[in-house]
Simulated scan of single mutants.
Amino acid sequence: MRDQYGRTVDYIRVSITDRCNLRCRYCMPEGIELVSMEEILTYEEIERICTAAAKTGIRKLKITGGEPLVRLGCAELIGRLKQIPGMEQVTLTTNGVLLKEQLPDLKAAGLDAVNISLDSLDRESYRKITGRDQLPLVLESIEAVLESGIVAKVNSVLLKSVNEKEWEDLAGLAERYPLDVRFIEMMPIGYGRQFEAVSNEEIRKKLELRYPEMAADEREHGNGPAQYYQIPGFQGSIGFISAIHGKFCGSCNRIRLTAQGLLKPCLCYGETYDLRSALRTEKKEEGEYLLQKQIQNAVAGKPEAHCFEAVQEITEDRKMVQIGG
């Protein structure tokens, strides 16, 4: 599908739950209110949406949450989504806590790649950020997924006065392991507005000073908008997803599905397209038509660009965990 600005949209991020086993300060702190399970899409409904999406031109799925692995049967769902005609790739974003435990099932399901969110390699710092002492499990999961042969990336968010000094340690994961480390600028959505982000330009300059031979890496690394760099001696590359200081809207190829069945054309704005109503109509054929139509409407309704650099113009007022990572 192409939107009104000529961009090809072939990728959808699918949140399957708003639950999580961590309590990260900028995403889902203690005390956050969760919706009832009756409001969350069933796996059958998610499969129907993804089937309709494939018929409209979607070719790649990213399963997200909350933390998708806390929902029972996540691997089974991935296996079913992999069987949808026209679907070329199904990947997963996780905090890694349950990844090692569920890895055999995920591999058997045909998972293509996994992104692991990790903001600190210091155990105490990790506990303060996430509210849980689970760093050893995450590090074990990273090693296990690499041993399995599944492609892995690490996503890191640096925040002022929180973990901003850990850029070198986190980047060092790409030296130690054959994986990419991506630094993601904090977006001013939900609790993220309460924190001061570290700009990727600042991190890149520090890395260039530390590694003068660092050079741009033009190879394709996945579906996202990251700009990658190679450092001599590193097994993986360093990527930067610069939503605030490196606007990449001109190449945006995605839409987002919340766990409650709302389709978002852009993370920045509150506009959504209701798919749950189409799913739960009594006439199935009519519902399938409405699903495809709403997906097409969402793509047609994608704005030209976000406005994260002008916080007062952001119209999305939900928390990030309610939207999907």
Results as ranks from 00 to 15, higher is better:
residue 163 N to C: 10
residue 147 E to C: 10
residue 155 N to S: 09
residue 97 V to A: 15
residue 156 S to D: 11
residue 111 L to Y: 06
residue 121 L to S: 02
residue 114 V to W: 00
residue 123 R to D: 11
residue 140 E to T: 11
residue 93 T to A: 13
residue 141 S to Q: 05
residue 141 S to Y: 02
residue 112 D to P: 02
residue 141 S to M: 06
residue 149 G to L: 09
residue 121 L to C: 04
residue 96 G to V: 04
residue 133 D to C: 06
residue 92 L to H: 03
residue 156 S to A: 15
residue 152 A to W: 05
residue 89 Q to F: 11
residue 107 K to S: 14
residue 161 S to F: 08
residue 93 T to V: 08
residue 102 Q to N: 12
residue 158 L to C: 09
residue 110 G to I: 04
residue 133 D to L: 06
residue 128 K to Y: 11
residue 92 L to F: 02
residue 158 L to W: 04
residue 107 K to A: 15
residue 122 D to R: 10
residue 91 T to K: 12
residue 118 L to M: 04
residue 142 I to Y: 00
residue 118 L to E: 06
residue 137 L to T: 08
residue 145 V to G: 06
residue 90 V to A: 10
residue 143 E to K: 08
residue 147 E to S: 12
residue 93 T to H: 07
residue 96 G to K: 10
residue 105 D to T: 07
residue 107 K to M: 13
residue 162 V to T: 13
residue 122 D to I: 03
residue 108 A to L: 14
residue 157 V to D: 11
residue 159 L to G: 10
residue 144 A to L: 01
residue 96 G to Q: 05
residue 134 Q to C: 13
residue 124 E to L: 14
residue 142 I to L: 11
residue 126 Y to E: 13
residue 123 R to S: 14
residue 149 G to R: 14
residue 134 Q to V: 03
residue 134 Q to L: 13
residue 132 R to G: 03
residue 117 S to P: 03
residue 116 I to K: 07
residue 102 Q to M: 11
residue 117 S to N: 04
residue 109 A to N: 12
residue 127 R to T: 12
residue 155 N to F: 02
residue 117 S to L: 00
residue 102 Q to F: 04
residue 118 L to G: 04
residue 98 L to P: 02
residue 90 V to R: 07
residue 133 D to F: 01
residue 156 S to E: 12
residue 109 A to F: 08
residue 125 S to E: 13
residue 114 V to Q: 03
residue 110 G to P: 10
residue 122 D to V: 02
residue 120 S to H: 00
residue 107 K to T: 13
residue 157 V to E: 05
residue 117 S to A: 09
residue 163 N to G: 07
residue 151 V to S: 15
residue 130 T to G: 12
residue 144 A to S: 08
residue 108 A to R: 15
residue 115 N to D: 07
residue 95 N to Q: 09
residue 109 A to Q: 13
residue 113 A to T: 02
residue 102 Q to A: 08
residue 138 V to P: 00
residue 125 S to F: 05
residue 138 V to M: 02
residue 127 R to P: 04
residue 144 A to F: 00
residue 125 S to D: 11
residue 156 S to W: 10
residue 124 E to K: 15
residue 157 V to M: 10
residue 131 G to Y: 02
residue 145 V to S: 07
residue 141 S to I: 02
residue 149 G to C: 12
residue 115 N to A: 10
residue 99 L to P: 03
residue 98 L to I: 01
residue 94 T to P: 11
residue 113 A to N: 02
residue 140 E to I: 06
residue 92 L to N: 06
residue 106 L to C: 06
residue 103 L to K: 05
residue 152 A to M: 08
residue 97 V to Y: 09
residue 151 V to M: 14
residue 159 L to D: 09
residue 113 A to I: 02
residue 93 T to Y: 05
residue 136 P to R: 11
residue 154 V to W: 03
residue 145 V to E: 04
residue 154 V to Q: 12
residue 130 T to L: 05
residue 103 L to V: 07
residue 143 E to C: 00
residue 161 S to Y: 12
residue 131 G to M: 07
residue 112 D to T: 01
residue 146 L to S: 08
residue 151 V to W: 11
residue 125 S to N: 14
residue 114 V to R: 03
residue 148 S to I: 03
residue 92 L to S: 07
residue 150 I to S: 07
residue 127 R to V: 01
residue 157 V to K: 02
residue 131 G to L: 07
residue 106 L to R: 06
residue 113 A to H: 00
residue 96 G to C: 09
residue 142 I to N: 00
residue 99 L to A: 08
residue 107 K to H: 14
residue 126 Y to N: 14
residue 126 Y to R: 13
residue 132 R to I: 00
residue 89 Q to E: 15
